[in-house]
Structure formats: C-alpha cells, structure tokens
C-alpha cells in the first residue's frame, strides 16, 4: 500500500485525512546511526540535528512506497527546510500544512481552511475522493488506536511495561497501516493484562519531556540507569493519544479542534501552558522526577527550559535538563548526569 510521509516536529498532522485518501500515514523518524553529510550541504551544522537527519534520509531515498510528503508546521525548521525538501526530493505530492501557532477560534477557522486545501490537493494529485464519510471512518479508527494506547500506557506506571518498550510501540503505530496497528495493540494489551510486574520497583519513576525523542535506544539507555519512564509529554507518547476526536461533529472541524485542544506542544503558543500539562501528569503519576531532554539547537525546548526549571523548583519536584546531540556515542557522556540525578532523588527518599 502506498504511503504519505509526514515531516512533523509535533504531532499535528491529521492522519485521518491521509487514511481517507487511501494511503498509509507514515511519520518520518530520524536515524541516529547516520551522519547528515548530504543534509549538511544544504543546512548549516548549527541547525536542528533531528531535521537535518530527516533530510539526509530523504536525499538518500525514502521508503519506496512513499508517494508524497506532508510537512506540518511545528517549529521554524519545518517551513524553512520544506523548501529545501522541494529541491532535493522528487515526489509528486508535497504539501506544507500551516498548523496554527495559536489555539483560538480564529486559528481554528484557519486550520479548517488549510485542511480543506490539503484534501483538495490530495484529491487533485491522486484522483481520489476524500469524503466526509471516509474521514469519519478514519476518525473512528484513530480513536480506537488512541484508546488502546491510553490503556497500554498505564502499564508503565504499574511497572509492568518498560517505557522504552512503550515508546517503540507508539513509534511503530505512527508508521504502519492503522488496521495492523490495532491488531498489534490489541495483542499487546492482552499480553500485558496477564503479565506481572517485571520492572524493578526500586527504579525511580520519571516523567520524560523535551524534543520529540525518537530513538528508543535513548529511552532504554535512560531506564537502564535505574529509571522507569512512567509517563511522558512527548509526540511519541501521550501527545499522540491523550485526547480523542469528537465523532459527532463535522469531521474536519472535529480534527482541527482536536489538534488545537490536545495538550500543548513546545512548538505552539503559549508554550508555557506546558507547565500545567507536565505538572498535572507529574502529580497524577506521582513521579520522582522530571527529565527534560533537548536535542542540540532545538529552540522551542531551549526557550522553555529556564521557566520550567524555576517552576518545578518551586514545586520541589526534582528536574533534570539535558542537551544532547543526535547520535548514540554522545549518550554515553550523559551517564554521570543521569546517575547524579538518580542520587538526588534517592537522597530525598
């Protein structure tokens, strides 16, 4: 089945529209084992490590089933680099979706207009009809996925499911056929229901936030240092499934509303509202600490960090901020900082 690739530094792309057009929605992820040599011929090395990595893969050749790309406005990187994607890759369908920065009624109307334009261009490019009925069916499908992920997510705090394993699952769901995703998730849920606690209960319970961390090995690396990610504030995590799309509303409006009402991403305004999102999660899941990881040059996360740091200090919740390169060699250099953070938490017990 043909796929539409998604280049999105948040999770604001309405996958339902892609599904209704008859494609598999496939979010693009980085590969920390490669160097962005080709991408560095287009983008300075002092720019976001993650988006350069995606461009590198695009130049070298994406999955052969990908017939088009939707780039969705997250941070500044997406719109500026989209023009470079247009020059570097040869696909029939390339659309830049202006997911609004703001979240009010005017922004909602605009987002609806932009989604309608996306539909119109998909219909013209691929001679398909993206009807309201098809979008409604896709909404139901995606809501089912959201429900299943929500249920599975809870096994992290029950110390049954490792955060890294959950991360890998969410990542896979964002790339595969969504009917297959449901089968995968249902099987996983059944397995978890019969599984006993396997995670070391001495592990410190962590809320993980920051850039859209997509290397599961990194999550595994953190957990192996004595932590359990029980909850997160990530695109490959809760932001993908926390809310549901209203199935009773006009479908495009319902999709736009869903994206503007879900827990705010660092790329949107006012990003300081993330504090409330993170605080509520941290309190609900009784975490021992918060880890905020910024990819090198990830401006949205870098701007929010001092504010979050101050606020969590006021709340007396241990908070660790890490700035990291996007390659596995660099993870090792972070061990001391994670271990020291573990010690800080331990001393509070």
């Amino acid at each position: 089945m043909k796929k539409i690739g998604i280049f999105d530094s948040g999770v604001d792309t309405p996958e339902e529209i892609i599904l209704a057009a008859g494609f598999v929605s496939c979010r693009l992820f980085g590969d920390p084992t490669i160097e962005p040599d080709k991408a560095n011929e287009h983008i300075p090395p002092t720019h976001c490590v993650w988006t350069r990595n995606l461009l590198e893969q695009a130049i070298k050749g994406l999955d052969k089933d990908i017939v088009g790309i939707i780039a969705t406005h997250g941070c500044d990187r997406t719109n500026r680099e989209f023009d470079i994607w247009l020059k570097c890759i040869n696909l029939d369908f390339m659309f830049f979706l202006n997911s609004p920065f703001k979240r009010n009624k005017i922004a909602l109307k605009f987002f609806i207009d932009d989604m309608k334009e996306l539909i119109s261009q998909l219909e013209d490019s691929f001679s398909v009809k993206v009807s309201s009925e098809k979008i409604k069916v896709a909404i139901k499908l995606m809501n089912k996925i959201r429900s299943l992920l929500m249920e599975i997510s809870e096994f992290r705090s029950k110390m049954v499911l490792k955060g890294a394993e959950f991360h890998a699952l969410v990542k896979e769901v964002q790339q595969i056929d969504k009917n297959e995703a449901i089968k995968l998730l249902e099987a996983k849920l059944e397995e978890l229901k019969t599984k006993k606690t396997t995670v070391n209960k001495k592990y410190k319970k962590i809320l993980l936030t920051g850039s859209d961390l997509d290397d599961t090995e990194f999550i595994e690396y953190i957990e192996n240092l004595g932590f359990q990610i029980v909850i997160d504030d990530l695109g490959i995590g809760t932001k993908y499934f926390w809310n549901k799309v209203d199935e009773n509303k006009e479908p495009i409006e319902a999709l736009a509303e869903y994206h503007l009402k879900k827990p705010i991403h660092s790329t949107k305004f006012p990003s300081y509202e993330r504090y409330d999102v993170i605080k509520n999660l941290a309190e609900s899941y009784k975490v021992d600490g918060i880890i905020n990881v910024a990819h090198k040059f990830c401006e949205p996360v870098l701007y929010d960090h001092p504010y979050l740091s101050k606020k969590f200090k006021e709340l007396d919740i241990p908070y660790l901020f890490i700035e990291t390169e996007y390659n596995r060699e660099s993870y090792k250099q972070l061990a001391t900082r994670f271990e020291a953070f573990g010690e800080i938490i331990k001393r509070r017990d």
Binding site: H73, N79, F82, D83, L86, M94, F96, N98, P100, I106, A107, K109, F110, D113, D114, E117
Partner: peptide
Amino acid sequence: PHVVSNTSNRQREYFKKY
C-alpha cells in the same frame, strides 16, 4: 502562516483572511 515555494494564490487568500 508560512509561505513556502509551492504555496498557491488560493492559499494566500485564506492566509490573508487569517
């Protein structure tokens, strides 16, 4: 809204409205 290299005139119209 961000104008990119393949933004159409039709898009510019609702960008302006916004």
